[in-house]
Amino acid sequence: MTNQQLAEFPASDRLEQLRSGLTAVERRIEAACAAAGRPRSEVTLIVVTKTYPASDTRLLASLGVREVAENRDQDAAPKAAECADLPLTWHFVGQLQTNKVRSVVRYAHHVHSVDRTRLVTALADAVAKAERPPLGCLVQVALDKEKEAGAAGEGRAGVAPDDVLALAERIADTPGLRLDGVMTVAPLAGTLAADPAAAFARLAEISTAVRAAHPAATMVSAGMSGDLEQAIAAGATHVRVGTAVLGARSRLG
């Protein structure tokens, strides 16, 4: 369904679509938590609303959604402004260029994709200029950059596992930023690419090491529509789900 078709879709019908998607995802999360022996309260659902209009975000909010995510500032900034009256927590989950930082810090509560020291500096400078509360930051981990991964070709954005602790330390020591934890996307290359469960288990090991040095950095952001069960089994505290809630995306229209 294109965005133009969505705009012409009756709001009541779209509300029921979203309700159905949310219900199905909630059942999956509940089942995954039960299978892992974890309380449902340990896992936060973040609905990724990228490519969908602010009207969908409003409908989601009416259904009780409080955590939403975007991966492109050019989409997120106007949507966050239009939805500023809603009780939402905004997560930025995409690759972030330094020239977009000033805009992102105006609305984001958490940035999941911190992957280099230059970005840490830029975020801190923007936070100071915005005179806003500390910004939550997660280190994005590129598991296909593991030395033993045997990765070849194009991989995920993020920092290599061996470099996570150093970047986490840099965030924690930077005024205006708060180290919240780690994030990953299942790798595209290497030995872990075919095994999301093993990939998320590796992220759990990295998270444990980060928490040993920074006990408050408890967020483990992992798992999407296709692999949220494996992520929850490995200890994810936040799952980022878009398609399973909102339907297949299109930028047409």
Score class of each variant (00 low, 15 high):
Met1Cys: 02
Met1Leu: 04
Gln4Phe: 00
Ala7Trp: 03
Ala11Asp: 14
Ala11Gln: 12
Ala11Arg: 12
Ser12Tyr: 01
Asp13Lys: 11
Asp13Ala: 12
Arg14Ala: 05
Glu16Met: 07
Gln17Val: 10
Arg19Phe: 03
Ser20Arg: 15
Gly21Asn: 01
Gly21Val: 07
Leu22His: 03
Ala34Ser: 09
Ala35Trp: 05
Pro39Lys: 13
Thr44Glu: 10
Ile46Glu: 11
Thr49Glu: 06
Ala54Phe: 09
Ser55Met: 05
Thr57Asp: 02
Arg58Thr: 04
Gly64His: 11
Arg66Val: 06
Arg66Asp: 09
Arg66Asn: 03
Ala69Glu: 11
Glu70Gln: 04
Gln74His: 13
Gln74Lys: 10
Asp75Thr: 14
Ala76Val: 02
Ala81Ile: 08
Ala81Lys: 15
Ala81Pro: 04
Ala81Leu: 12
Glu82Gln: 15
Asp85Phe: 11
Leu86Tyr: 07
Leu86Lys: 13
Thr89His: 12
Trp90Ile: 13
Trp90Gln: 08
Trp90His: 10
Phe92Val: 12
Thr98Glu: 14
Asn99Pro: 06
Lys100Val: 07
Val104His: 09
Val105Arg: 13
Val105Lys: 14
His112Tyr: 06
His112Gly: 04
Ser113Trp: 09
Arg118His: 14
Val120Ile: 15
Thr121His: 12
Ala122Gln: 10
Ala124Tyr: 01
Ala126Ile: 13
Val127Pro: 03
Ala130Phe: 06
Ala130Ile: 07
Glu131Pro: 00
Arg132Met: 13
Pro133Thr: 10
Leu138Ser: 06
Val139Lys: 03
Val139Glu: 01
Val139Cys: 09
Val141Arg: 01
Leu143Cys: 05
Leu143Pro: 05
Lys145Glu: 14
Ala149Arg: 04
Gly150Leu: 03
Ala151Ile: 00
Ala152Phe: 01
Ala152Leu: 06
Gly153Thr: 02
Glu154Thr: 15
Gly155Trp: 00
Ala157Glu: 13
Gly158Asn: 08
Pro161Asp: 02
Val164Gly: 05
Glu169Cys: 10
Arg170Asn: 12
Asp173Asn: 12
Asp173Arg: 15
Thr174Ile: 08
Leu177Cys: 07
Leu177Thr: 08
Leu177Arg: 15
Val182Met: 07
Val182Ser: 03
Met183Gln: 09
Leu188Thr: 13
Gly190Met: 11
Thr191Glu: 10
Thr191Lys: 14
Ala193Asn: 10
Ala193Lys: 15
Ala194Arg: 14
Ala194Leu: 06
Ala197Ile: 03
Phe200Val: 09
Ser207Glu: 08
Ser207Arg: 14
Ala209Asn: 08
Arg211Val: 08
Arg211Asn: 10
Arg211Asp: 10
Ala212Trp: 08
Ala212Arg: 15
Ala213Ser: 12
Pro215Gln: 11
Thr218Met: 08
Thr218Asn: 11
Thr218Val: 15
Met219Arg: 13
Ser221Ala: 12
Ala222His: 12
Gly223Ser: 14
Glu229Thr: 09
Gln230Ser: 14
Ile232Ser: 00
Ala233Asn: 01
Ala233Asp: 01
Ala236Gly: 01
His238Asp: 02
His238Gly: 00
Arg240His: 01
Gly242Asn: 06
Gly247Trp: 05
Ser250Leu: 07
Ser250Val: 02
Arg251Ser: 08
Arg251His: 06
Leu252Cys: 01
Gly253His: 06
Gly253Val: 08
